[in-house]
Simulated assay, not measured.
Amino acid sequence: MAEIKTKAAAVSVDDFLEAVEHPVRRADGKAVRAMMERVTGEPATMWGPTIIGFGSYHYKYASGHEGDMCRIGFSPRSASLTLYVGGFPEYDGMLARLGKHKRSKACLYINKLADVDVALLEEIVTRTWMTSADVDHCTVC
Rank of each mutant, 00 (worst) to 15 (best):
E3K: 14
I4D: 03
T6P: 01
K7Q: 12
A8E: 15
E18F: 09
E18Q: 15
A19H: 12
A19D: 12
H22F: 03
P23G: 00
R26L: 06
D28P: 13
G29A: 03
G29H: 04
A31P: 12
R33W: 01
M35S: 13
R38C: 09
R38L: 08
R38T: 12
P43L: 01
I51H: 09
I52W: 05
I52G: 04
F54L: 08
Y57R: 13
Y57P: 01
H58L: 04
H58D: 12
Y59F: 11
K60L: 15
Y61Q: 08
Y61L: 12
M69I: 15
R71T: 01
I72N: 00
A79I: 14
L81A: 05
L83M: 12
F88N: 13
F88W: 07
P89A: 01
E90L: 08
G93E: 14
G93H: 12
R97M: 11
R97W: 01
L98G: 02
G99R: 00
K100G: 05
H101Y: 05
R103E: 09
K105C: 02
A106C: 07
K112F: 00
L113R: 04
A114N: 08
D117M: 00
L120Q: 05
L121R: 02
L121D: 04
E123M: 03
R127K: 14
R127N: 06
W129D: 06
T131E: 04
A133I: 11
D136R: 13
D136I: 09
H137K: 05
C138M: 09
C138G: 13
T139D: 09
V140G: 06
V140K: 10
V140C: 09
